[in-house]
């Protein structure tokens, strides 16, 4: 038996909205300690990794480990039934054929229930090696989203360069070439800070369209954390306060 209740249901709505354009069918791993999912996009260039801790739920019970195969596209349709201030409860029996989703609004006495049919997915899990990222950039999530959108109109590819003084996003195309350079900014307004932790410089190229999809998650956190390592995929990380973390992994483009 699995049951989890989230008082701030809006978070779950945002999480589904943040991953629905990247992954289609996912296996949601339920365990006594929390909920996790790992899935790649169809081209195996991007990977979504979500981890939610049981502590973040108003009520959480999972007697055993379970795997719930879910069509994210269908889950997104069901989540549309939720109002932004609904409490959301997820329920599934052992060997369940469906996931029961309940939206409650204690103020308006409105309750919505939906049994989402589960699907069987034989998706293989990828082993993500523990990596010591030699560059970690913490940046305002809205600002990073804006930079990506603006650069995308100038080029499909962005080159990210880090060093101890700045992180640089450069583009080059038939329009011309240029870069956005952000230095360390410890302004007193915390959410405007840009924090660079660079032990080794990194320079890699990435397809911006994936970054734009990842940035849908910027509604979940005021900060985006970019973790870079010269030989590893980029990690774009959004911490979900009191609940967990949503990470996106993006394979680089190798310049010839």
């Amino acid at each position: 038996m699995f049951e989890a209740k989230l008082t701030e249901g809006l978070i779950l709505k945002k999480i589904v909205e943040s991953i629905k354009d990247i992954v289609t069918d996912v296996n949601i791993d339920i365990s006594p300690s929390g909920i996790s999912l790992q899935a790649m996009d169809s081209s195996h260039v991007a990977l979504v990794s979500l981890n939610l801790s049981m502590d973040g739920f108003e009520h959480y019970r999972a007697d055993t480990n379970m795997v719930l195969g879910v069509s994210i596209a269908n889950l997104a349709k069901v989540m549309k039934l939720a109002d932004n201030n609904d409490q959301i409860t997820l329920q599934a029996d052992q060997e369940a054929t469906h996931l029961k989703i309940i939206f409650e609004n204690p103020k308006t006495e409105r309750t919505t229930e939906f049994n989402l049919n589960l699907i069987t997915i034989d998706s293989e899990h990828l082993a993500i090696p523990e990596t010591e990222y030699s560059s970690v950039v913490t940046i305002n999530s809205g600002e990073f989203s804006k930079i990506c959108k603006e650069l995308f109109s100038l080029s499909e590819t962005v080159q990210i360069t880090t060093n101890t003084d700045y992180v640089q996003f450069s583009v080059e195309g038939e329009v011309g070439s240029g870069q956005v350079r952000l230095g360390h900014n410890d302004s007193e307004k915390k959410e405007d800070q840009t924090i660079l932790e660079v032990s080794e410089s990194v320079q890699q190229q990435f397809a911006i369209r994936y970054l734009n999809m990842f940035n849908k998650a910027s509604t979940l956190s005021s900060f985006t954390r970019l973790c870079l390592h010269q030989e590893q995929p980029l990690v774009v990380e959004f911490k979900i306060d009191n609940l967990g973390v949503l990470k996106y992994f993006l394979a680089p483009k190798i310049s010839d």
Binding site: M40, V45, L126, Q205, E231, P233, A251, S255, D256
Partner: peptide
């Protein structure tokens, strides 16, 4: 522009 790598180049199937 560089060739797009896939995650399979970096992460092994479990």
């Amino acid at each position: 522009k560089g060739a797009q790598k896939s995650l399979g180049n970096f992460f092994k199937k479990q």
